[in-house]
């Protein structure tokens, strides 16, 4: 878990702080920001493995932020989280490359497991690329 770095994006600051606090307590290396542009700024500055992204945010919404993250950092895994269950948004997000679409309220352990699974996927993708590079050499 130590090498896993996660970013939580949610405009509901109270919810964000509670979730971050509880996940940190369980040993997660996670930070929070409250908008899509802030998330993109963090990703430009530091390596992140997994992003947990609220879907409905003022300004840049979750889908737009997801689109930009996957375009700029295709190996970063994004988990969508929402208080507004929408089949259409879920499928759209998955088509754009989101790892999963989860609904609030969510069991904290379930969210952590999901982040770990997303991290595992990212590591495999990186290894796959490295191994192809080796073969090319």
């Amino acid at each position: 878990m130590e090498s896993l770095k996660a970013l939580f994006v949610d405009d509901e600051t109270e919810y964000l702080q509670t979730a971050i606090k509880r996940m940190k307590k369980r040993g997660m290396n996670i930070i929070g920001v409250s908008s899509g542009p802030e998330a993109l700024a963090i990703l430009a500055e530091q390596k992140m493995d997994v992003v947990v992204m609220d879907m409905r945010m003022p300004g840049m919404d979750g889908i737009q932020a997801l689109r930009e993250v996957k375009q700029l950092y295709p190996l970063v895994e994004v988990i969508m989280l929402t208080g507004h269950a929408s089949m259409e948004a879920a499928i759209q997000g998955m088509e754009l490359g989101a790892f999963d679409y989860l609904m609030k309220p969510i069991d904290i352990d379930e969210l952590i497991y999901k982040i770990q699974d997303a991290f595992q996927k990212r590591q495999l993708q990186i290894k796959k690329i490295e191994s192809m590079e080796k073969m090319r050499r």
Binding site: A85, S86, M87, A90, I91, M94, D100, Y101, M103
Partner: peptide, 20 residues
Amino acid sequence: MQFVRSSCTRVSTDVFQIVQ
């Protein structure tokens, strides 16, 4: 209706992932 929406969204998301 929240149950209807969230359970249908959940199962659709899961099945879409299965297809992927």
